[in-house]
């Protein structure tokens, strides 16, 4: 076969070439498949351990073999989770996460629209400041945030957690949305503008619907971030009435150090919405997790 040849000559020469290629890929594939399988075990076994342990009795945990399924599986651990007020913590987490996500997505979209549509130097500077904000860690601001939330009288409230979560969710969401809104063709803006639409109307009826996929990805990403956030609740709350799940499970573990099966049930319960979302909409969840980092 000549170097690249035309399509036709390639097809004619296909059979021997194809065999050789297939054998190579298979030999290559075995090494990768072996590694992939080893990682499957490494990834899945601790999860299986979590699940198995959550169905053990306290006695079964202390005397049984931890790598085997429980001899006398029980649901009592999950019953105890619900009796320990975890439904309340679950609601707190849901309120905090939903409010944060809605505010982040709304504020970021509005700002993204202005950044894309205007040439003003001030706007450009604002965008650059947010980009620098991407590099600044939450940990670096947590002490002043703690003092500020105290001074505002919002210590130990759900709002007190939501405010800084929104602030720290904005930079990445903004970056993703700016990249997306930029791709909306100029003609669409112009035709709406000719019809006399205001900026708010353009965002509402043109930009928001067209950026729906990006809004969903950003929303999922920020939801996972706030659902699993630990530092803000740790520093900004203390009462049980406003506890969110990550803090509640740490507290629970501290009080029930010996009762491992119940703690494992608590851990699984705390991830329930994300696990369910993964089962029913795994594709979107994965896309959301990667939002902004790749395609």
């Amino acid at each position: 076969m000549t170097t690249m040849g035309s399509q036709n000559s390639g097809v004619q020469q296909m059979p021997p070439r194809h065999r050789a290629r297939k054998r190579r890929i298979t030999g290559h594939g075995i090494a990768f498949t072996t590694f992939g399988t080893i990682w499957l075990i490494i990834a899945a076994y601790p999860l299986l351990y979590m699940l198995m342990t959550s169905f053990r009795t306290q006695n079964g945990y202390l005397t049984g073999k931890p790598w085997l399924p429980p001899a006398n599986p029980t649901l009592s651990n999950y019953a105890q989770v619900l009796q320990s007020g975890f439904f309340h913590y679950f609601l707190n987490s849901a309120i905090v996460s939903v409010c944060s996500v809605v505010l982040i997505v709304l504020f970021a979209l509005l700002l993204a629209y202005v950044i894309v549509r205007s040439q003003s130097r001030t706007v450009r500077t604002v965008f650059n400041v947010f980009l620098v904000g991407l590099a600044l860690p939450i940990q670096a601001a947590i002490i002043p945030v703690y003092i500020l939330i105290n001074k505002l009288g919002l210590y130990d409230t759900l709002i007190g957690m939501i405010l800084p979560m929104v602030a720290f969710g904005l930079p990445l969401s903004l970056l993703i949305l700016v990249n997306f809104v930029r791709d909306i063709p100029n003609e669409l803006y112009e035709s709406m503008g000719l019809e006399g639409a205001t900026d708010f109307q353009i965002v509402r009826y043109l930009v928001a619907p067209l950026s729906a996929p990006a809004l969903v990805s950003v929303g999922i990403y920020e939801f996972i971030q706030s659902w699993n956030n630990f530092l803000f609740p740790l520093v900004l709350t203390q009462s049980r009435s406003v506890q969110v799940l990550p803090l509640a499970i740490v507290q629970f573990q501290g009080e029930h150090t010996i009762d491992v099966p119940v703690t494992m049930a608590v851990v699984l319960f705390s991830a329930l919405p994300l696990i369910l979302a993964y089962i029913f909409a795994g594709k979107y969840l994965r896309r959301g997790m990667l939002a902004g980092f790749g395609k």
Binding site: L103, L106, F107, A108, L110, L111, Y113, V114, V123, V126, V129, F130, G133, L136, A141, I143, P144, V145, L148, L163, P164, V166, A167, F168, L170, P171, L174, D199, F200, V203
Partner: peptide, 16 residues
């Protein structure tokens, strides 16, 4: 439209 994002980010991230 720019204000909410700027206020939140400024008050709870940048200024801290």
């Amino acid at each position: 439209m720019m204000l909410p994002a700027i206020i939140f980010f400024g008050a709870f991230a940048l200024v801290p």
